[in-house]
Amino acid sequence: MRDLDLTTLRLLVAVLDQQNMARVAEQSHIAASAISKRIAQLESNLGVRLLVRTRRGVQATPAGLALAEHARTILFAAERIETDVTAFAGGIKGNVRILATPSAMAESLLEDISSFMREPQNSQIKVDIEECLTNELLRNMREGSTAIGVCWNHSDLGELQQLPYRKDRLALAVHRDHPLASHESIRYEDTLDYEHVGMRPDSAVVIMMQRAAARIGRPVRYRVLVSNFDAAFRVVSANLAVGIIPIEISTLYASASQVKMIPLEDDWAQREFSICFRNLEALAVPAQRLVEHLARNGLQARQPASTAALNT
C-alpha cells in the first residue's frame, strides 16, 4: 500500500462528518470532483470501498468507518507534531510531557505546574499534562515515551529513578446523616459493614482498599461504580454509599455541606507520591527544571509550617 496522504484523510473525515461532499468542497475551496477523485484513488490503493451514496448523502461503509477512526488519530498526531515543532520558532525553548495519576491531578500538581510556568525563567517552556492510571504511566515511562511521571510511591517503579513529592491521607467520606458520621476518626475495617462507592478496579485507591480488606478477610461491597472523585462525592452527598477519598481533595468540594470527611486510622492511609523519571541527568534542561520545582514544592509542603516559613 502506498503512503497515506494526510490531505486525503482530512477530506475523507470531513466528508463522513458532514455526509455531504459538495459542502466540504465549498469549505475547503476545492472542487467536489477533486475530492471524489482523491477518495476513489484511496479506495483503489486499499482495495476496498469506503463510501456509498444514499438519499441522505454520503455514508461510510464498515471499512470507511474503521479507516476514519484511524485517520482521526493520525491527523491529531500530525497536528501535535506541527504545533510542537513550530513552537520552537516562536521562541519556546523546550517542551515537557508529564503523566500523572488521577489523585495527583486532583490535588496539587496542576497548581505546582502553573507556578512553575509563571516563573520568568520558565516562560518559554511548554508543559503537556496527561492523566492516566499507574500501570499505564509506568509502561510509558519505561518505554521512554514521556519524560516525567507522578504516582503513588508504593508502585513498583523498578529501574526508574524517583524523588519524593507530596503526601496525602485517605479518609472516609460520609453523608452527615450516615450512622458513621459521629466518628472523628475510623479504622477501615469498621467501614466494611456499609456499601461503598468504587472507582476503576486498577486505580491506586481501589487497589489499596482491596488489599486492606483481604488482610482482614472481609469483602468490600460496592453499591455504585464511578470514574472520578467528583462523581464519588456526588454519590456520598446523595447518601447512597460511603467512599474512601484523599482528604486533600475534599477541600475542592467544600460546598458539598452534606459530606463529612473522617480520617482513616490505618497506617496505609497515609500515602506519599513520587516524581519518577528514567535518568535525571539525561533529561532535557526544561524537564530537569520542572522536576526540581515539583520536588522543592513537595518538600515545602511536607515540612511543618514554621520550618517551611524559614526556607521562603
Rank of each mutant, 00 (worst) to 15 (best):
Q258S: 13
D177T: 15
R139H: 07
R234N: 15
Q161R: 12
L240C: 02
M209Y: 05
D202N: 08
L294N: 09
R296W: 04
I30M: 14
H196A: 09
A25K: 05
H154F: 04
A238G: 13
G91A: 03
E143C: 06
V236K: 08
D128K: 12
R176V: 05
D190S: 12
R218M: 06
I98R: 05
N153K: 14
D5W: 05
E184W: 07
H154E: 08
W152Y: 07
H175G: 13
V259H: 05
L110E: 11
S185W: 02
L180Y: 07
E159Y: 12
T61F: 00
V242S: 04
R55H: 09
R176L: 02
A204I: 04
Q300A: 12
L283C: 05
D202K: 10
A295K: 06
E265C: 02
R278G: 10
D156A: 08
R278S: 14
L192R: 15
A282P: 09
H29I: 01
L299I: 09
L310Y: 05
P164G: 10
G144D: 04
D112I: 01
T54W: 08
A100K: 09
I81A: 09
N45Q: 13
R49P: 00
D3G: 05
A31L: 01
R56K: 13
R10Y: 00
E26N: 11
R200F: 13
R23D: 04
Q162C: 08
V48T: 02
Q300F: 10
S115A: 13
A254T: 08
T73F: 01
L110Y: 06
L137D: 05
Q18W: 09
L163Q: 06
A305R: 10
E248A: 13
D112N: 02
R166I: 03
V24G: 05
F116Q: 03
R10I: 00
N311W: 03
P62M: 09
A231V: 04
I148E: 01
R221S: 04
S115C: 05
A301I: 04
D17A: 13
R234H: 15
V291T: 09
I39P: 07
I247E: 14
R169A: 15
V174W: 10
S185I: 10
M21T: 14
N297K: 10
P201Y: 03
S145Y: 02
T146F: 02
T251E: 12
Q124I: 00
E265W: 00
I113K: 02
T191K: 02
E82F: 07
L42Q: 09
